[in-house]
Write a protein that binds this DNA or RNA. Structure first.
Lengths: 205, 205
DNA sequence: CACTAATCGATATTTTTTTATCTATTTAAA
DNA sequence: TTTAAATAGATAAAAAAATATCGATTAGTG
């Protein structure tokens, strides 16, 4: 496989190539990709070497072939079945964010505990009562639990999701979850991201 | 300074220590921190060595001192003045997310182009007309522009923010921004994050 | 009071990730 | 047709990050 930074960059190339493709170009060099995405050509070349596409010197890569190859490589997102817990603002944003669709994330259920939200629809997803989560998940196998709940509920819900047999958790709550080793957890640490940004600003001055 | 992963972990320790402190304990070992946060003791020790706090063998670190020291170290977020562009769902979430407050992010302005949103209030912030952005930013110096707009507007708005003199951009739109070298840009690539998660699930099976 | 077990902190090693160098290939221009 | 410039790809080096080792220190126990 390949590293986390590489996967993220591949998704960036992928998106970028779709744009360039739409503009009608047929070939693109890694020098140009690098310039437009503020990266180094060497890094782009190395990242793209995971594909089966070889570029032509002086010309670059065939855009459609490369995009096809990335489509295939990035297909591990295809058919990943998820449920989202917490239909607040963040949950709302994620449900309406179309960027996952091309990578195949399939949100099967949305749960919340707020009676005002239950049975409403968000972007075509019916909000279900969290009380019935176990029942729903026993009928339909779910790979990923997406946690967009307030901090205080996160751990309890994580435990329940694991009991229901999810393979992975994608946690947006500002807390580090304690979860069995066999379950994949990806934390999004937004406050930490801000600190990284702030530290870089300080460095510049 | 220290690395990006370290800064993120320090923010995690910081939050965790506040919890433990509230529970009344006085000392904590890095072994215990590591165990509870699913990290390795060595890494915790190394990360914490940027502080001026020394631990006692067999006992660990004095929690309050350590938390104080992290407070100081993580203070580079203090007084960072920001404006947020795009009062959609994601913007809404960020405005209401209290996790930044303790690190000092100060959101001075919120802009949007939607007449229905202009002059409404979100968590105490008046939504201003994007047309007047330059004027507002000329009066109050702003460090960071937070972009929570749809993809198509992101680059144009980024350019405007740079013209207005922001030092950094925090971009949540799914596009890689082209920005002068002297401006710090931090991209949040949420679709890329999903792919990383998906790839890890595939690895496990 | 001596011994044991836990833990820190410094240094070293390994692994991962990024960046550089060099050669061969190919296009386009002279 | 020859030559020059741009570029890919392989290999190598450097930098960054994570992990391991080991001696010194200290609280608790017999």
């Amino acid at each position: 496989m390949c590293s986390e930074p590489t996967i993220k960059r591949l998704s960036v190339y992928h998106k970028y190539l779709k744009e360039v493709e739409a503009s009608g170009q047929e070939f693109i060099s890694c020098t140009k990709i690098a310039k437009n995405l503020h990266l180094l050509p060497i890094q782009v070349r190395k990242d793209l070497s995971i594909t089966d596409i070889v570029g032509k010197p002086r010309v670059g890569y065939h855009i459609k072939d490369l995009r096809d190859s990335l489509d295939r490589f990035l297909s591990f997102g295809k058919g990943v079945k998820a449920c989202l817990i917490g239909a607040g603002n963040l949950g709302y944003s994620l449900l309406r964010y179309k960027g996952f669709d091309e990578y195949g994330l399939d949100i099967k259920f949305v749960f919340d505990n707020n009676p005002d939200k239950i049975d409403t629809y968000i972007d075509g997803h019916q909000v279900l009562d969290i009380k019935n989560m176990a029942e729903h998940l026993s009928k339909t196998e779910i790979d990923v639990g997406v946690l967009t709940v307030p901090r205080v509920y996160a751990q309890t819900l994580a435990n329940k999701l694991v009991e229901c047999g999810v393979k992975a958790l994608w946690n947006f709550a500002p807390i580090r979850l304690l979860i069995p080793q066999n379950v994949v957890v990806k934390h999004e640490n937004i406050a930490g991201s801000f600190l990284v940004l702030a530290s870089r600003i300080k460095q510049i001055r």
